[in-house]
């Protein structure tokens, strides 16, 4: 029975070490990341979008992207139905029944922009093993570096909005996604999609100002005449226009979802009908990183287990070697 007692003793010693290590790494739990005060983003108002897709073309232009065909037949224009490695921005349509009335659930239609939401606590950045996806500490823009990327597509699978895409048709395929036109910012320009939007449905600006604008809109009395800014909300570079307020769904999509996003969305049709599933407020990356840091923070737990294992193995292997010497 000696071996059984030994076994118990070892198991106890091991679990004591493990438990000790686990308690001292508890401090590693982290909540959602906080937004930078200078973060920039977009406000998309579905009720203002007329589906002209000027932003889709402007995005291609600004990013030097080729045509993308949704059907095998090559037409003279490109008709992407979803974001791809070569299309960073699409306008999707919701249609019901006869599709006659704008922003109506029944027999109506509505538009929704699909491009990176520049999450405050992005899953893609947390997932990327080689820091190819990064979040700018000041602007909060989530950028991609193909020279660092290993093409594992963990970001593609992890993004809760299905945004980053990989180019499977190329032996040297890259990930493609909106980087909020970060290459245009140093030139004094801003997001091309917002710049060309004729109605101000896509608006660029500081997230804090965009959020205030979104709240102003939700508080409007339906039908009341109001001012609609266009282009860059922060600099006011384009003239605004006047028109009546719609009946909004009282929800700013992106204010709380997965810890908040720097692209905010307003609509008159419920968001789940516009391809936006309800999401929890706790970011998935904070859950994943809390788990990782609890288990591996400072390598305390693995080293404690390794220590226990080495101690036990040393005794048992020696005994094993004695037997082995007889060969």
């Amino acid at each position: 029975m000696a071996s059984r007692r030994d076994f118990l003793k070892r198991a106890l010693a091991g679990s004591a070490a493990v438990a000790g290590a686990a308690t001292c790494t508890d401090a590693s739990a982290r909540g959602n990341a906080q937004i930078s005060p200078d973060a920039v983003g977009l406000l998309f108002d579905s009720t203002l979008c007329i589906g002209c897709k000027a932003c889709v073309a402007a995005c291609k232009d600004a990013n030097g992207l080729p045509l993308d065909y949704a059907t095998p037949i090559e037409a003279a224009w490109d008709v992407p139905v979803d974001t791809t490695a070569k299309t960073f921005n699409v306008i999707k349509a919701y249609v019901d029944g006869s599709g006659m009335h704008k922003d109506q659930v029944q027999d109506g239609y509505a538009f929704m922009k699909s491009s990176c939401l520049h999450c405050v606590d992005p899953s893609c950045v947390s997932a990327c093993p080689v820091s190819a996806m990064t979040k700018d500490p000041v602007t909060g823009i989530v950028g991609y570096d193909p020279d660092a990327c290993i093409g594992c597509r963990y970001c593609v699978a992890a993004c809760p909005f299905g945004i980053p895409k990989y180019d499977y048709d190329s032996p040297t395929g890259k990930i493609g996604k909106c980087e909020l036109c970060r290459h245009r910012l140093p030139e004094g320009k801003y997001a091309a999609c917002a710049e060309v939007c004729p109605t101000g449905a896509t608006l660029f600006g500081k997230v804090s100002e965009l959020k205030a604008e979104a709240k102003r809109r939700l508080a409007l009395t339906p039908g009341a005449e109001t001012t609609w800014p266009r282009g860059n909300l922060t600099t006011g570079d384009q003239p605004s226009w006047n028109g009546p307020a719609p009946v909004y769904v009282q929800h700013i999509y992106g204010e709380k979802e997965v810890g908040g996003t720097q692209m905010l969305k307003l609509a008159a049709v419920p968001f789940d009908k516009l391809g936006h599933r309800p999401l929890p407020e706790r970011s998935f990356s904070s859950q994943s990183e809390t788990l990782q840091h609890t288990l591996y923070g400072g390598l305390v737990l693995p080293l404690a287990v390794l220590g226990a294992m080495t101690w036990v193995a040393k005794r048992n292997v020696k005994h094993d070697d004695e037997g082995g010497d007889h060969d």
Binding site: V130, S131, D147, I150, Y168, T172
Partner: peptide, 28 residues
């Protein structure tokens, strides 16, 4: 075989690239 940009595979263990927050880094 599965890595889309396999020639960069060494980044996963290279300081400066490797991201300890990523679960995949830990696995690799």
């Amino acid at each position: 075989f599965d890595l889309g940009r396999w020639w960069n595979f060494w980044h996963i263990l290279a300081p400066g690239y490797a991201s300890p927050n990523s679960v995949m880094f830990e696995v690799a």
